[in-house]
Amino acid sequence: MDNILEIRNLRKDFGEFTLKDISFSLERGYVMGFIGPNGAGKSTTIKLIMNLIRRDAGEIKVFGLDNRKYELKVKERIGFVYDESHYYEELTINEMKRIIAPFYRQWDDNMFNRYIREFGLQPDKKIKNLSKGMKMKFSLAAALSHNADLIIMDEPTSGLDPVFRNEILDIMRDLLQDENKGVLFSTHITTDLDKVADYITFIHNGELVLTGSKESINEKYGIVKGSQELLDGDTRKEFLGIRETGFGFEALTGNVDRVRKLFADSVIIERPSLEDIMLYTVRGSANA
């Protein structure tokens, strides 16, 4: 298996928040959606990959190389997009490009200009005069113009209107025409993932909840609906999160086969959306 990104037992302790031994990996040619509620540790994980913060323990390998030992080699091939622009806003798009370009050996000016045209950006416009969506597109153009193999995006769609969001997602999909590339992008908007993600990694409170392909998640997880009488101390333990109403209950399971055996035909099992999985898990852990 050719992993473009591999994370093993990654740990970072901030005192009030700890990222606890996160592990997941991404193969070449795929998009991984990195989800979790605000404050789950998504940005922390991404900053650890980018070596913007120092890990306390664990391993991060990008293209099979340690991200700290081979920092320059690794970053040469990563394109990054963050939720805020962090560019020098007094500069124009072209001026900012002239600052970034010389850092990359493989910078491709033609490609950058093509993206700028495609995205409808005006190169002599000051960054501070761009809308949030335009700034995001500029970040994306910069991230895609040095032949990066791994694109890392932290909340690229947050705060954008649906039209812009769809455009960004389309660009991501186009990018994956090249089977050598991989994309890791974090979001708390789960419908983004239904559109483009092949793999999902879900973290909550600094802990890994699940990671795997979208199909495997669809096979394992289910929303179970049944009447109240079925719930007791033992059966409750089977669920990751339960919502009870006057008429019955709805609950999330991470093991559809087992639930099917246990309850047979007395319950209805439906396929959960990613949003369901996120909501039930977050609520479940809040009740526990």
Binding site: M50, N51, L52, E71, L72, K73, K75, E76, I78, F80, Y82, E84, S85, H86, Y87, Y88, E89, I100, F103, Y104
Partner: peptide
Amino acid sequence: KYKSEIIINSLPVK
């Protein structure tokens, strides 16, 4: 002002 060190340190630079 722009927390640009985040960008700078994300570039291939030590």
